[in-house]
Design a binder for these strands. Structure first.
Lengths: 255, 255
DNA sequence: GAGTGGTCTAGACCACACG
DNA sequence: GTGTGGTCTAGACCACTCA
């Protein structure tokens, strides 16, 4: 009875660390500021570096920190709102929509892509690779799949590959009517090629946005876009300029 | 010159491990099957347990595995598509929409919530906690914020708290017209209370869906819903029954 | 070359589920 | 109790960036 409440549910150290760091970020650090290095932070908190890293990893996942090998750990700016609403009902490539075509090719679709396109397990598809740039930073890498049958006019196009052909493919798409699109969002980890485009390491957490373009009840194209989960907030509707901090019902800053 | 291509870019072990395990999952394991325990797997692959765990963590993040303390690691079923489209334009609680109210209270909104609601930094808000259940499993936990001024009729309601009052609050909301809603999706980690509702550990990755309910140009309510990122795929539109595997442009199964 | 974060090891102990 | 995954340690070395 003489004891002071002895941690009946001992919180993991890294979890507690995360809380402490979050408060410190709110009150003592400015966006872009560099934190002490991991070895020093670990020493300062009296934990092993691995434990400190576990806390930093979560904070990076939540978009509070940005870590870069050979450079250091910096305080991340608030996530940018990226509009992915389907309200405009337009084909990709219409006007300038912040996407820039990079490459182009064709391939036999994998099982998963074929399923996305509804059947056509054998028919080759055109692929277009695009990058989405906002506020000067690449936020997403996309692979667009267009079954050859969907755009017959394509065989007449000269350019064998590269951005020129990519733009040509997109231009052909504009000729089709677009009845609607299906969209899904899920968590994934960046494949090596996507990671490179997004300036992240392979395996970095990404939001995978899968879209099916529908015309006349049929799926005429599909795309898989991977957005940097650390820096992006996907918006649907006109909330693009809304600011939402990570701290939601939680911590107050002391300052 | 006599050397065989010596790993110019040595892939991290855990990354390679992940690939191997992914292939094995595709070809040799059925959904629900339990894997050998971590110590055994690590020994079998000749790596430290921590390294093996790094691979397992990523696979869990991608929704391929499910790990539970004291139980083991099992092969996860495909992610369930959860509809979060705004097309119906209905208030929460209308008809049976797979959400079940749990609790109810009131509080002074945090800074972040106040921002979400547009100003009203001082005005108290009613809060409603709801759980979304699909296919027998809880997929999301939500906190709905309703400024007291939005629903004046509420002060007449008897029930002090609990599900009864929660339902009453939702019922009151139905009386207002709904002009539109704003929605945003981002990655987060589960707070302790959410984690408990979702049967996950604190810090588990979640998809945070923020919604603002608009009436007459004003935000009259807002909600923050956290979806299990490991088991859910958020769908917008009528793609709810679409099956998308994690393996997208990547690996083929050998089998 | 110096300093950073990223990977990896070989242990230890803890919290939890289940019989 | 036994077995599982979760946390933690104290090291080591590697890959990268930048002056």
């Amino acid at each position: 009875m003489g004891t002071t409440q002895l941690e009946s549910v001992p919180e993991p150290k890294y979890w507690h660390l995360k809380t402490v760091l979050t408060d410190a970020l709110d009150s003592e650090f400015a966006v872009g500021e560099i934190l002490p290095n991991e070895r020093e932070l670990a020493a300062r908190f009296g934990v092993a570096r691995a434990t400190l890293r576990q806390a930093l990893e979560q904070l990076e996942l939540e978009g509070r920190l940005q870590r870069r090998r050979g450079v250091g750990t910096t305080v991340a700016p608030p996530r940018v709102g990226v509009d992915v609403s389907t309200s405009q009902q337009t084909w990709p490539g219409a006007s300038d929509d912040a996407w820039q075509p990079v490459e182009c090719g064709s391939a036999v679709p994998s099982a998963a892509v074929a399923r996305l396109l509804d059947a056509n397990g054998e028919e080759p598809v055109h692929t277009v690779r695009r990058i989405r740039v906002t506020h000067g930073q690449s936020v997403a890498a996309e692979l667009l799949y267009v079954p050859a049958g969907s755009v017959p006019g394509l065989s007449a196009i000269d350019a064998p590959s590269g951005p020129a052909r990519a733009r040509a493919v997109l231009r052909e798409l504009q000729h089709l009517d677009l009845d609607g699109q299906d969209r899904a969002v899920e968590l994934g980890s960046a494949r090596a090629d996507d990671a490179k485009e997004l300036d992240r390491l392979p395996g970095a957490p990404v939001l995978v946005v899968t879209t099916r373009y529908i015309t006349g009840g049929r799926t005429v194209a599909a795309s898989v876009a991977t957005y940097r989960a650390d820096t992006c907030r996907l918006t649907f509707g006109d909330s693009g300029d809304l600011e939402i901090s990570d701290e939601l019902p939680g911590g107050k800053k002391a300052s």
